[in-house]
Amino acid sequence: MGKVAMLIDTSKCTGCRGCQVACKEWNDLPATTTTNWGSYENPPDLSASTWTRISFHEVADDRGVRWLFFKEGCLHCTEAACVEVCPTAALQYHEMGFVSLDEDRCNGCGYCVEFCPFQIPRLEINPLTGQGKAYKCTLCQDRVTNDLIPACAKTCPANAIQFGDREAMVTMAQKRVEELKAIGYTNAVVYGDKELGGLGRIYVLTERPSVYGLPENPQVPALTRLWQKGIQPFGYAAVGLTLLGLGFNWVVQRRVARAAEAEEEG
């Protein structure tokens, strides 16, 4: 099976948010309560029940006004920090080239949340059981492993979301950037073709990545490699009981903080 990828061409996106809703429909994600905070954009952030959303960016300069729409969600890194740190293999590299998530295996440790260079996964604590689960876009892993394309890609009215063979997506993205440059989008760039070993989500951007809130040069946190290549092979003993108390403390604190945030988001 070849690697697949999603191509998001921001120059074509109309911000209709069909993708945002189709994701919720397919994945049975509930709506959250929102308020208008002076923007078309809502919900205001990704969450356990919002795995993709459109952020709206207004740019006004000597070239006039531009209204940019950016589809947020998991970038499905080839070198994925979340997979590297996931202690339960709930997060895995799928052979098709995306980062799969098995909810049943997730123990809610929250490392993926901490280590993701794009700050994508979100942890939700069940208020009754206290059990946490991490959530993020799975690239509709059930659809793509059953010969369907992701719900967001299928629903996109503007053909701004393409899905298919990764190499074809990269080629398409590069070609599109050339076209855009030719018609005056001098900042147009492909994002994700090479970053972090190549992402499973590739963007065609008309502005610099930072305009959309993307890191210009994302890195897998150094510690991730240390964890995988250094500490994990030693086994638990090497980490030592001396660290256990400290670590446990940290996890608990993180959980409390996240739960409080989740309540605020309501």
Partner: peptide, 26 residues
């Protein structure tokens, strides 16, 4: 009108996903 709502709103202001996306008069 805006994408997330329909006309006088009964067909969308009763749908949580659309209300979430466009919650209030602006």
């Amino acid at each position: 009108r805006i994408t997330e709502h329909m006309q006088a709103g009964a067909m969308t202001r009763n749908l949580p996903w659309l209300v979430e996306a466009m919650p209030e008069l602006f």
